[in-house]
Design a protein around this nucleic acid. Structure first.
Lengths: 199, 199
DNA sequence: TGCAAAAACTAATTATATTAGTTAAAATGT
DNA sequence: ACATTTTAACTAATATAATTAGTTTTTGCA
């Protein structure tokens, strides 16, 4: 009983992540987490200010973790290949960390600066990947919004059991991403034409 | 005080919807709802079995309401025009009823038969709208998954304040839907070619 | 009018988060 | 090694919310 747990914020976060990836966010409570860590509930308050702060930390951690993985995959790739890699990584992340992704998207206080910054980093990465297509800045932002919608929508629907039909889910995803990529090419061509006709 | 509130399930649901569309799902509690209805919290248990059942009813109601509106808009339309109408209606619904949409997508027990049936109705409507393109059954299902991903993803990101840039959000949406529609045309053409080369 | 059912109520119970105040362990300096 | 300070656990108490039990009031119909 007495051999003091060596708790700290990162140990708490780690255990919380395990717990939510396994059982979902609704299972996370000060009580369930304290039990996992083999301490009494009030002990957690020496490290975090409460459940809300913990959820916020999980959200930020989740977005940063997703960003790290996407950055890894984007390195050394460009264009269509980079988009496919990023998309695959995103879906993979949500499948591996459903609870953490849930924490990152459902519960955070959107006012939080650190959160906003982490989200912006993901967006910036996507913008960068689109640079090779030489799109107008505006068009690039529209397309990044589209890609995010696709990735978040598909992942979320899959997680909530939304794809009931037996049809292969990965094929649906590839098809969707490829369709989107073809859309980018169309946009790029059209803009090139516009510019030429203006000259 | 005494002139008995004439409560019933539908009055409760109606007030709950007002409450969540205005303040979000996290604000919904037996206590807050009872206060709105000017009764004591235990009184609600004469009509519903508890908060979980209420949330489930809200979810089902939400999906059915969305389906009704989509059905209205799909009537008398087909092809590209129908897809645009459905998409616009979907986004409009989420904007008008953010709390109800949240209830419909975030909290329901996915095992519930009535819920599954309501969700299936939406999917079937989308499948029907795609019929005019004469796609293979499989392709149609892939595309419906794609369209749902786009609609859910875009709506959700917008609701969570995910589109921070000042760039016009409706334009992003139109562009995304139009890109998707062009993707459908491409798929349709390819399948026609395949069939011809097989003959 | 009187009775049965419905639907409200008060009071009590349970679960959870949180705070207050206490104590034990660990780390640090002499 | 020992005393002091700090950290981080603990127990006990409080607050809020959901829920249940049991009671009473109202309503509608015979």
């Amino acid at each position: 009983m007495s051999p003091r747990m060596k708790l700290d914020v990162s140990v708490i976060l780690q255990k919380a992540i395990e717990l939510i990836d396994q059982h979902g966010m609704e299972y996370l409570s000060i009580g369930s987490l304290a039990k996992e860590l083999q301490v009494r509930p009030p002990s957690l308050y020496n490290h975090i200010s409460g459940l809300d702060e913990l959820k916020q930390k999980l959200a930020i951690h989740g977005i940063k973790a997703l960003y790290e993985r996407m950055l890894q995959e984007a390195a050394g790739r460009s264009g269509d290949e980079a988009i496919r890699a990023l998309s695959k990584t995103y879906l993979q992340f949500v499948r591996t960390h459903p609870g953490l992704y849930e924490a990152a998207t459902r519960f955070p206080d959107p006012e939080d600066k650190e959160l906003q910054q982490a989200q912006q980093a993901v967006v910036n990465l996507a913008v960068k990947v689109l640079e090779v297509y030489h799109l107008k800045k505006e068009t690039a932002v529209h397309l990044v919004r589209g890609l995010r919608s696709i990735l978040h929508g598909f992942s979320s629907l899959e997680q909530m059991g939304g794809f009931a039909m037996s049809l292969n889910v990965d094929e649906s995803f590839s098809l969707l991403i490829n369709t989107f990529i073809e859309g980018i090419h169309l946009m790029a061509m059209r803009e090139k034409d516009e510019i030429q006709s203006e000259e």
